[in-house]
Computed example of a mutant assay.
Amino acid sequence: MPFFMIERRYAEEFEANADEADQVRRINDEEGVRWLYSFLSADKRKTYCLYEAPSPDAVRRAAARAGLPVDVVTEVAGQVTPDGTLVAF
């Protein structure tokens, strides 16, 4: 299944909440999307999230249902480690 990096911009500082994260995971499960992890920008107004999903549309549907913004969806093919190794997904 493909992997996607999702960039989200928030109008206000993002605040993590376990109940909301659980709701997002439930919606993702229904859409066939798996949230792997997220990075939060220093100003707490952007997140960069790695997802495994069948398509960009599935990611967008899940986000819309969860009330989350989706500004950029980029399919990623692998990871480059500091030693120069390319790890394909």
Rank of each mutant, 00 (worst) to 15 (best):
P2F: 06
A58N: 04
G67F: 05
A18F: 08
V72R: 15
A62F: 12
N17K: 10
D57P: 09
A18Q: 05
A62P: 06
D19K: 11
D43S: 14
L36I: 12
T74A: 15
V72L: 15
A66I: 04
F89M: 10
F4A: 01
R65Y: 04
D19S: 09
R25H: 12
L86W: 10
T47Y: 03
E75L: 09
K46G: 03
T85V: 13
A63V: 12
F3L: 13
S38K: 03
V24N: 02
P82W: 07
T85M: 12
V87C: 05
Y10K: 02
V87R: 02
V87N: 08
F4K: 02
I6W: 01
A21F: 11
P54Q: 07
F4C: 00
A66F: 05
G78W: 08
E20D: 14
L68F: 05
E20Y: 14
V24R: 01
S55D: 14
M5Y: 00
Y51N: 02
T85G: 06
E75W: 07
E7P: 00
I6E: 00
P82A: 06
R26P: 02
T85D: 08
A62W: 03
V76P: 01
G78Y: 10
Y48N: 00
V72C: 07
A42D: 09
A62C: 06
M5I: 10
L36S: 05
T81Q: 08
T85Q: 10
S41V: 02
R61V: 07
P2A: 11
P56I: 12
S55Q: 07
F3H: 15
Q79R: 15
V73T: 06
S55A: 15
W35V: 01
N17P: 11
V72H: 07
G67W: 05
G78V: 02
L40E: 01
R8W: 04
V76Y: 03
L50F: 09
N28G: 03
Y48C: 03
V72T: 14
A53H: 04
R45W: 13
D83L: 13
D22Q: 13
Y37C: 04
L40F: 09
P69Y: 06
A16I: 08
E75V: 11
M5D: 00
Y51Q: 00
E31W: 10
E52Y: 07
A88H: 14
R25W: 06
D19R: 10
L86Y: 13
E31H: 14
F14L: 03
T74C: 14
I27W: 05
T74K: 11
T81Y: 10
V80H: 04
R26N: 07
V59Y: 03
M1Y: 05
T81I: 12
P82F: 07
F4I: 03
R26C: 07
V87W: 09
